[in-house]
Computed example of a mutant assay.
Amino acid sequence: MRRFIGGCLIAVAVLPALWLDSAAAAPRLLVDVRTGQVLYADDAATSWYPASLTKLMVAHLVMREVEAGELDPRTIVTMSTHAASQPPSRFGLKPGSEIELRDALRIMLVRSYNDLAVAVAESVAGSEAAFVEAMNRECARLGMRGTHFVNANGLHDPGQVTTAHDMALLALAIMREHPQNFAMFGNAETQFDGRTIKNTNGLLRDYPGVDGMKTGYTCPSGFNLVATAYRGGRRLLAIAMGEPSTKARAADVSALFDAGFAGRLKPVGPLSRYDSSGLSPAVDLKSYACGKSLPAAALPLALTGG
């Protein structure tokens, strides 16, 4: 626990014409994990609210501590009054209830419970604020210049922002640094105390080859998804943010994977090409009735790289 103390464009046929107008272009990104080459990028440096994609960083930091021997995966996480009071979605443990760290993390990654994320942060770092400091230090280490965290669960805060580029950096770090624990990001469902908990990432059940990672939603952010898929000896990482629905985010990520695995997209440069210049205000979809006031675009039929 010691680390937590102190201190050129791509020509695309129709992906997507996008459901957002020019005032709020939604980020999309597709990366070949082995080469680090970007196969498709659209507004990858645009500032966006991460919502529960935040929990990728929570899991990354906890896994790093466990793998370094600083934390026991059986460490008891106690549900504080503060953690239990987080808005839904909640796992629902009462204040004073206990759960092992490994169970809390596994369940949080499957269902994105906000109370568990805060309880984990408090139990690991002593307070949520101290854990958030560690999250931001890790952003600096990974080069996530367009990201700043304010809380551990991703509930909306104007100061909590990220980019598709930065989420890709984080996802790649997780795959690189935690191969023995990567399976935790790919459980289609899990069980605990007689309960069956289904993952909010439906692609884990519906798209052959998808094996991780995380969903996120708040009204200001829209529906976000970071996903990985492995097929024919090749692994791809896809990111879609600001979608109008779970169905739309799954469809756009599926279209990216389809095009990538079919070889219709050619490399357009390294991920660093899509870095942001730093923090900036994020697009707020609340002004678009959480995206519902904007027309959804027809799903793409094909993609071509250029």
Rank of each mutant, 00 (worst) to 15 (best):
Gly7Ile: 07
Leu294Arg: 01
Gly96Phe: 05
Ser22Pro: 09
Lys266Val: 14
Phe4Pro: 07
Ala119Leu: 06
Pro88Val: 13
Arg273Leu: 15
Phe4Ile: 08
Thr200Ala: 10
Leu203Pro: 04
Thr75His: 11
Ser127Gln: 08
Pro88Cys: 13
Trp19Met: 10
Arg176Ala: 12
Gly202Ser: 15
Leu39Phe: 04
Lys286Ala: 15
Gly202Gln: 14
Gly194Asp: 00
Ala298Trp: 10
Gly7Thr: 12
Ile10Val: 11
Gly186Met: 02
Val66Leu: 10
Asp115Cys: 06
Leu256His: 03
His156Met: 10
Thr228Gly: 03
Ala129Ile: 05
Arg231Phe: 03
Arg2Ile: 15
Gln180Asp: 15
Thr75Met: 14
Pro300Lys: 03
Ala140Ser: 08
Val14Gly: 13
Met135Glu: 04
Pro244Arg: 01
Leu237Asn: 02
Pro95Phe: 04
Asp166Ser: 04
Gly291Tyr: 02
Ser254Leu: 00
Met241Tyr: 00
Pro281Gly: 09
Ala125Tyr: 04
Arg74Gln: 12
Asn224Phe: 10
Ala13Ser: 13
Ala164Gly: 01
Leu301Asn: 14
Ala117Trp: 08
Leu18Cys: 14
Ala171Thr: 12
Leu30Lys: 01
Asp193Phe: 10
Ala188Glu: 11
Leu256Cys: 00
Met57Gly: 01
Ala164Gln: 00
Leu29Glu: 05
Val253His: 00
Ala251Gln: 07
Glu177Tyr: 10
Asn114Gln: 09
Met175Ala: 14
Ala41His: 03
Arg141Ile: 13
Gly232Thr: 00
Val120Ala: 05
Leu279Ala: 06
Gly263Thr: 06
Met57Asp: 04
Cys219Tyr: 03
Ile99His: 08
Asn201Ala: 03
Ile99Tyr: 08
Trp19Gly: 11
Pro16Gly: 15
Glu70Trp: 14
Val31Lys: 03
Leu109Pro: 00
Ser47Leu: 08
Trp48Gly: 14
Pro87Gln: 05
Glu65His: 12
Phe185Met: 05
Pro50His: 11
Pro88Gly: 14
Asn114Cys: 08
Ser245Tyr: 01
Asn199Pro: 05
Met57Arg: 02
Phe261Trp: 01
Phe4Arg: 12
Arg249Tyr: 05
His165Gln: 07
Arg264Cys: 06
Leu30Ser: 00
Arg141Glu: 11
Gly269Pro: 09
Val62Asn: 05
Leu9Cys: 11
Pro95Ile: 03
Leu116Ile: 02
Ile197Asp: 05
Ala164Val: 00
Thr35Tyr: 06
Arg234Met: 11
Ala262Arg: 10
Thr46Asp: 15
Asn114Tyr: 06
Lys286Asp: 13
Ala41Thr: 05
Leu225Lys: 02
Ala262Gln: 10
Leu170Phe: 09
Gly260Ala: 01
His60Gln: 15
Leu39Arg: 05
Val14Tyr: 15
Ser47Val: 06
Ala282Cys: 07
Ser52Val: 03
Lys214Ile: 03
Ile99Ser: 09
Leu142His: 00
Lys55Trp: 08
Tyr274Asp: 08
Pro179Val: 09
Ala255Gly: 02
Asn199Ile: 03
Ala17Tyr: 12
Leu170Glu: 09
Ser123Cys: 09
Ala51Leu: 07
Gly216Ser: 03
Ala255Met: 00
Asp72Leu: 12
Ala84Tyr: 08
Gly306Val: 12
